[in-house]
């Protein structure tokens, strides 16, 4: 049953991606991308990867569509037609695709218990999670403790991405006189009563759900990344409803930047504190007299760091795009 579902969804995915490539209208491409994201999340879910599916849900459903539309407001609607270079590109893609398809013949069957991944290190992770951390979600254990270096690297990637976007798109906040005009323009959806009422009702629940994902990540699907994206979505919803300036008043730019920097710093400093306490970098066991409690404490703190960094970065990027619109 799983196979039938997965193959069905995957073929829909292929159709959607071909349509995305073929359309010249960028708005249509954005909408098809959101369909792609839904299909992807359903696929991950059916293949039992709840954590990844939740990430796709948190980022794909709200944030990406909003940021794509912000970018689209800055550019034209249609893709510039290109005549040259099509042939080389097609040949290159065809060769690469056939190489990749050829490579899949060597891969083990999906869910094969004899596959190398299930022999080599996965059993060790599953065994040691209960021993070292004593909580059920192995994915969180791998991400934040066993492969803590990777996650630290990811947080720095998020940090660097945010800095990069701000460098390219960032504009100084408008002066007071201009600001009034901008505020006048940016009323958001304030005169639409239905989204206004429903949005106000839903925003607290979105933020609450984000916090739940943040702190329940050790027991169910979730963690810092998903939580940061969900909370950012809640604040973006507020910005859509009340106008972007209201959102900036609620969570000013400096706070957002502080969150990005503070999140990355928090993660790194936990590692350094571990070293001061006599362990290795990011070896949380030394944080407390009880190694299990030390691991849990370390994971809690670094997940908070990841959440802060992601939330701050997504919101900074959103505001950078939105502020750019008022300048031009």
């Amino acid at each position: 049953m799983i196979f039938v579902f997965a193959i069905f969804l995957l073929s829909l995915l292929v159709i959607t991606s071909i349509a995305i490539v073929r359309t010249t209208n960028l708005f249509v491409a954005v909408m098809l991308t959101s369909i792609f994201s839904f299909l992807m999340a359903a696929n991950f879910f059916i293949l039992d990867a709840a954590d990844v599916a939740l990430t796709e849900a948190a980022v794909g459903a709200g944030v990406t569509t909003v940021i794509f539309l912000c970018a689209l407001a800055l550019t034209g609607e249609r893709e510039k037609p290109r005549i040259n270079g099509r042939k080389t590109a097609r040949v290159a893609v065809a060769i690469l695709a056939s190489l990749m398809i050829y490579a899949t013949f060597d891969k083990p069957r999906l869910g094969d218990p004899d596959a190398p991944v299930h022999q080599h290190i996965a059993p060790w992770y599953i065994e040691k999670t209960t021993e070292h951390m004593d909580f059920p979600n192995v994915v969180t254990a791998i991400l934040s403790s066993f492969r803590g270096y990777d996650t630290l690297g990811e947080v720095f990637v998020v940090f660097a991405a945010c800095i990069g976007v701000l460098f390219i798109l960032g504009v100084p906040p408008p002066a007071q006189k201009r600001l009034n005009k901008v505020v006048e323009q940016n009323k958001g959806l304030r005169h639409h009563l239905i989204p206004q009422v429903v949005g106000r009702l839903v925003i607290p629940f979105i933020v609450l759900f984000g916090l739940y994902t943040q702190f329940h990540g050790e027991y169910g699907p979730g963690g810092g990344f998903q939580a940061g994206a969900i909370i950012a979505t809640g604040i973006i919803l507020y910005a859509l409803l009340e106008g972007e300036n209201k959102a900036l008043q609620a969570v000013p730019r400096s706070v957002l930047l502080g969150m990005v920097i503070g999140g990355a710093l928090l993660f790194g400093s936990v590692g350094v504190i571990c070293m001061f306490m006599g362990g290795n970098f990011l070896e949380y066991s030394v944080l407390s007299a009880d190694p299990i409690w030390g691991q849990q404490l370390g994971i809690l703190v670094i997940e908070a760091g990841v959440g802060m960094a992601v939330c701050g970065a997504l919101l900074s990027i959103f505001h950078a795009f939105a502020a750019r619109e008022n300048v031009s």
């Binding site: 959806l189 639409h192 239905i194 989204p195 429903v198 949005g199 009702l201 839903v202 629940f205």
Partner: peptide, 16 residues
């Protein structure tokens, strides 16, 4: 509950 709240809102936004 959330589907019932957000679905019609999305429809409203789209029609608008």
């Amino acid at each position: 509950l959330f589907l019932l709240l957000t679905g019609p809102t999305a429809t409203y936004a789209l029609a608008n």
